[in-house]
Amino acid sequence: FKEKSRSVLREWYAHNPYPSPREKRELAEATGLTTTQVSNWFKNRRQRDR
Score class of each variant (00 low, 15 high):
1 F>E: 05
1 F>I: 14
1 F>V: 10
1 F>H: 05
1 F>D: 04
1 F>Q: 09
1 F>N: 07
1 F>M: 04
1 F>R: 03
1 F>T: 05
2 K>T: 13
2 K>V: 07
2 K>I: 03
2 K>Y: 04
2 K>A: 03
2 K>H: 08
2 K>M: 09
2 K>R: 05
2 K>Q: 10
2 K>S: 14
2 K>C: 10
3 E>R: 05
3 E>A: 06
3 E>Q: 05
3 E>P: 03
3 E>F: 07
3 E>I: 05
4 K>Y: 11
4 K>F: 09
4 K>W: 07
4 K>S: 13
4 K>I: 11
4 K>H: 10
4 K>D: 15
5 S>D: 09
5 S>T: 13
5 S>L: 11
5 S>V: 13
5 S>F: 08
6 R>I: 14
6 R>L: 14
6 R>T: 14
6 R>E: 15
6 R>A: 12
6 R>F: 07
6 R>V: 15
6 R>W: 12
6 R>Y: 10
6 R>S: 12
7 S>G: 12
7 S>P: 06
7 S>V: 13
7 S>Q: 15
7 S>R: 10
7 S>T: 13
7 S>Y: 09
7 S>C: 12
8 V>K: 10
8 V>P: 04
8 V>D: 06
8 V>A: 11
8 V>G: 02
8 V>H: 07
8 V>W: 02
8 V>I: 14
8 V>M: 14
8 V>C: 08
8 V>E: 07
9 L>C: 03
9 L>N: 00
9 L>Q: 00
9 L>R: 00
9 L>V: 01
9 L>W: 01
9 L>I: 02
10 R>Y: 06
10 R>W: 10
10 R>S: 14
10 R>T: 11
10 R>I: 14
10 R>E: 14
11 E>I: 03
11 E>R: 04
11 E>M: 04
11 E>D: 12
11 E>N: 07
11 E>P: 00
11 E>T: 04
11 E>Q: 06
11 E>W: 01
12 W>Q: 06
12 W>S: 07
12 W>P: 02
12 W>D: 04
12 W>T: 12
12 W>M: 09
12 W>F: 15
12 W>K: 03
12 W>E: 10
12 W>C: 05
12 W>Y: 10
12 W>H: 12
13 Y>H: 01
13 Y>A: 03
13 Y>D: 02
13 Y>P: 00
13 Y>Q: 03
13 Y>I: 00
13 Y>R: 00
13 Y>S: 02
13 Y>W: 06
13 Y>T: 00
13 Y>V: 02
13 Y>K: 00
13 Y>M: 02
13 Y>G: 00
13 Y>L: 04
14 A>Y: 09
14 A>E: 14
14 A>N: 08
14 A>R: 07
14 A>V: 11
14 A>W: 03
14 A>P: 02
14 A>T: 10
14 A>H: 08
14 A>S: 13
14 A>M: 12
15 H>A: 13
15 H>P: 01
15 H>C: 11
15 H>G: 12
15 H>Q: 14
16 N>H: 03
16 N>T: 15
16 N>E: 12
16 N>R: 01
16 N>V: 03
16 N>G: 01
16 N>I: 05
16 N>C: 09
16 N>D: 12
16 N>F: 05
16 N>Q: 10
16 N>L: 03
16 N>K: 04
17 P>V: 11
17 P>N: 11
17 P>Y: 04
17 P>T: 08
17 P>K: 09
17 P>M: 14
17 P>F: 03
17 P>C: 08
17 P>E: 06
18 Y>A: 08
18 Y>G: 02
18 Y>C: 10
18 Y>E: 10
18 Y>P: 02
18 Y>R: 11
18 Y>T: 10
18 Y>I: 08
18 Y>V: 09
18 Y>L: 13
19 P>V: 03
19 P>T: 02
19 P>A: 02
19 P>G: 00
19 P>S: 01
19 P>C: 02
19 P>N: 01
19 P>W: 00
19 P>R: 01
19 P>Q: 01
20 S>K: 06
20 S>Y: 06
20 S>N: 05
20 S>I: 05
20 S>W: 01
20 S>V: 09
20 S>M: 08
20 S>E: 11
21 P>Q: 08
21 P>V: 12
21 P>R: 07
21 P>I: 13
22 R>V: 14
22 R>A: 15
22 R>G: 15
22 R>K: 15
22 R>T: 15
22 R>N: 15
22 R>M: 15
22 R>Q: 15
22 R>E: 15
23 E>S: 04
23 E>T: 02
23 E>D: 11
23 E>F: 00
23 E>R: 01
23 E>K: 04
23 E>G: 00
23 E>H: 01
23 E>V: 04
23 E>L: 00
23 E>Q: 05
23 E>N: 01
24 K>N: 11
24 K>V: 14
24 K>I: 07
24 K>F: 14
24 K>T: 13
24 K>P: 01
24 K>C: 12
24 K>W: 08
24 K>H: 15
24 K>S: 10
24 K>E: 15
25 R>P: 00
25 R>M: 15
25 R>F: 15
25 R>S: 15
25 R>G: 15
25 R>I: 14
25 R>L: 14
25 R>H: 14
25 R>V: 15
25 R>W: 10
26 E>K: 02
26 E>L: 04
26 E>S: 04
26 E>Y: 05
26 E>V: 05
26 E>Q: 05
26 E>C: 05
26 E>N: 02
27 L>F: 04
27 L>A: 03
27 L>K: 00
27 L>I: 07
27 L>D: 00
27 L>S: 02
27 L>Y: 07
27 L>T: 00
27 L>C: 07
27 L>G: 01
27 L>P: 00
27 L>Q: 02
27 L>M: 08
28 A>V: 04
28 A>H: 08
28 A>I: 02
28 A>S: 13
28 A>N: 02
28 A>F: 01
28 A>L: 01
28 A>Q: 04
28 A>M: 08
29 E>V: 06
29 E>S: 02
29 E>K: 02
29 E>R: 04
29 E>G: 05
29 E>I: 08
29 E>C: 06
29 E>Y: 01
30 A>K: 11
30 A>T: 12
30 A>P: 01
30 A>Q: 10
30 A>R: 12
30 A>G: 12
30 A>N: 12
31 T>I: 08
31 T>W: 01
31 T>L: 12
31 T>Y: 02
31 T>A: 12
31 T>D: 00
31 T>F: 00
31 T>R: 00
31 T>G: 03
31 T>H: 02
31 T>V: 08
32 G>M: 05
32 G>D: 05
32 G>S: 12
32 G>C: 07
32 G>F: 06
32 G>P: 02
32 G>I: 01
32 G>W: 02
32 G>E: 09
33 L>A: 06
33 L>G: 03
33 L>R: 07
33 L>E: 05
33 L>H: 03
33 L>I: 08
33 L>T: 05
33 L>Q: 03
33 L>F: 08
33 L>M: 12
33 L>K: 08
33 L>V: 05
33 L>N: 05
34 T>A: 11
34 T>Q: 06
34 T>W: 02
34 T>G: 06
34 T>S: 13
34 T>F: 03
34 T>M: 04
34 T>Y: 01
35 T>E: 14
35 T>A: 13
35 T>C: 11
35 T>Y: 15
35 T>N: 13
35 T>D: 12
35 T>K: 12
35 T>F: 15
35 T>R: 11
35 T>S: 14
35 T>W: 15
35 T>P: 11
36 T>P: 10
36 T>R: 14
36 T>C: 09
36 T>F: 08
36 T>H: 14
36 T>G: 11
36 T>M: 10
36 T>Y: 10
36 T>S: 14
36 T>I: 11
36 T>N: 14
36 T>L: 09
36 T>V: 09
36 T>K: 15
37 Q>G: 06
37 Q>A: 10
37 Q>F: 04
37 Q>W: 06
37 Q>C: 06
37 Q>S: 08
37 Q>N: 09
37 Q>P: 00
37 Q>M: 10
38 V>P: 12
38 V>I: 04
38 V>L: 03
38 V>G: 04
39 S>T: 14
39 S>A: 07
39 S>H: 07
39 S>F: 03
39 S>W: 02
39 S>I: 01
39 S>Y: 05
39 S>Q: 07
39 S>L: 01
39 S>C: 09
39 S>R: 13
39 S>G: 13
40 N>L: 07
40 N>Y: 07
40 N>M: 12
40 N>T: 12
40 N>R: 13
40 N>C: 08
40 N>G: 09
40 N>E: 09
41 W>M: 07
41 W>I: 00
41 W>T: 01
41 W>Y: 13
41 W>R: 02
41 W>G: 01
41 W>F: 09
41 W>D: 04
41 W>P: 02
41 W>H: 03
41 W>V: 01
41 W>K: 00
42 F>K: 01
42 F>I: 03
42 F>C: 02
42 F>M: 04
42 F>Q: 00
42 F>H: 00
43 K>D: 13
43 K>L: 08
43 K>F: 07
43 K>P: 04
43 K>N: 08
43 K>H: 09
43 K>T: 07
43 K>W: 06
43 K>M: 09
43 K>G: 08
44 N>L: 07
44 N>E: 10
44 N>V: 07
44 N>H: 14
44 N>F: 12
44 N>W: 02
44 N>P: 01
44 N>D: 11
44 N>T: 07
44 N>R: 13
44 N>Q: 09
44 N>M: 11
45 R>C: 04
45 R>W: 09
45 R>E: 13
45 R>S: 11
45 R>G: 05
45 R>K: 14
45 R>Y: 05
45 R>L: 06
45 R>V: 12
45 R>A: 10
45 R>M: 14
45 R>Q: 15
45 R>D: 03
46 R>G: 03
46 R>Q: 10
46 R>A: 09
46 R>L: 08
46 R>T: 06
46 R>H: 04
46 R>N: 09
46 R>M: 07
46 R>W: 06
46 R>Y: 04
47 Q>I: 03
47 Q>S: 10
47 Q>G: 10
47 Q>F: 07
47 Q>T: 09
47 Q>K: 10
47 Q>W: 13
47 Q>C: 09
48 R>K: 10
48 R>V: 06
48 R>G: 10
48 R>Y: 05
48 R>S: 13
48 R>A: 11
48 R>C: 10
49 D>R: 03
49 D>E: 15
49 D>K: 03
49 D>S: 04
49 D>I: 04
49 D>W: 00
49 D>G: 03
49 D>A: 06
49 D>Y: 01
49 D>T: 04
49 D>M: 05
50 R>L: 15
50 R>C: 06
50 R>S: 15
50 R>G: 14
